[in-house]
């Protein structure tokens, strides 16, 4: 119990330290440049404390419950015994890794759905669009994008194909979609790429990438272990643009 408390106070201190520069910038500009007192200072301070305590509890819980088991599973799913490959082989057979793809997709979907920054952006988008964009549907669309992205990213690590080919291909798809997509959604779609990858997703996905790159024959964890985050940031853009496109087509269809 005491070790738990010291752990938590460490996390709380770390979170506090991360917030400090942000608080200093806000307060500094508020006093020196804007020269107006903050509206509802009590409520704001109260909210800030909630944010810091919330993030610290969240991280502490993740470290206790989710990260150890997630890393253990990433390890177990990629061992040669589980994949049932011949340990002497030097070429990986990408088809025997089907559980890895399934796990990558499921964990990508589930962690993105719980990502606090995505929840924040989705709340804002629903408020601004007057409910035309449903926060939960947006989060589902983003999560599907991440699920697909991470599954494809693990496929890339296993086959050892070049990262930039996938990323450049993805960009070209985004550019084509941008031309046809409803203008209202474009900013939100681009933003959704950056918000998906934070507190929950990054540690779990990085662990998966590194485990995979160290167990697949012929891969170097330092060179091939990276790139999953890039997939997780690119595919949500494609997913959200598609979601908006489909929503627009359906609306048009119902009018005619």
């Amino acid at each position: 119990m005491t070790s738990w408390l010291t752990n938590f106070s460490d996390t709380l201190l770390d979170t506090g330290r991360d917030v400090l520069p942000i608080a200093a910038i806000i307060i500094g500009f508020q006093i020196i440049i804007i020269r107006k007192p903050i509206l509802h200072p009590g409520k704001t301070l109260f909210g800030f404390v909630y944010v810091v305590v919330g993030i610290a509890l969240f991280l502490q819980g993740l470290q206790m419950a989710l990260f150890p088991i997630g890393e253990l599973m990433a390890h177990q799913l990629t061992t040669p015994e589980f994949i049932k490959t011949n340990p002497q082989t030097t070429i990986a057979n990408w088809q025997s890794y089907y559980w890895v793809y399934a796990f990558a997709a499921c964990i990508g979907f589930a962690t993105t759905l719980a990502e606090p920054s995505l929840i924040a952006v989705a709340i804002k988008a629903e408020q601004l669009s007057g409910g035309a964009i449903h926060a939960f549907s947006l989060r589902i669309a983003v999560s599907i994008g991440v699920a697909f992205g991470i599954a494809l990213g693990t496929f890339r690590i296993i086959t050892g194909t070049e990262l930039y080919m996938y990323i450049v291909g993805g960009y070209i798809l985004v550019i084509i979609q941008t031309i046809f997509a409803p203008k209202l959604i474009i900013g939100l779609a681009y933003d959704s790429g950056g918000v998906t990858t934070s507190t929950v997703t990054v540690p779990l996905v990085t662990a998966l990438g590194l485990e995979l790159a160290s167990s697949v024959p012929g891969r170097n964890p330092l060179l091939d272990g990276f790139g999953l985050i890039a997939f997780a940031s690119l595919f949500p853009i494609i997913a959200v643009l598609s979601y908006a496109q489909i929503a627009e087509w359906r609306n048009k269809g119902s009018l005619t």
Binding site: G47, F48, Y50, V51, G54, A56, L57, P116, I119, A120
Partner: peptide
């Protein structure tokens, strides 16, 4: 933690 964060978000950030 997530609960505190979301409530704090709407009150402050």
């Amino acid at each position: 933690g997530l609960t505190f964060f979301i409530i704090g978000l709407e009150l402050s950030l």
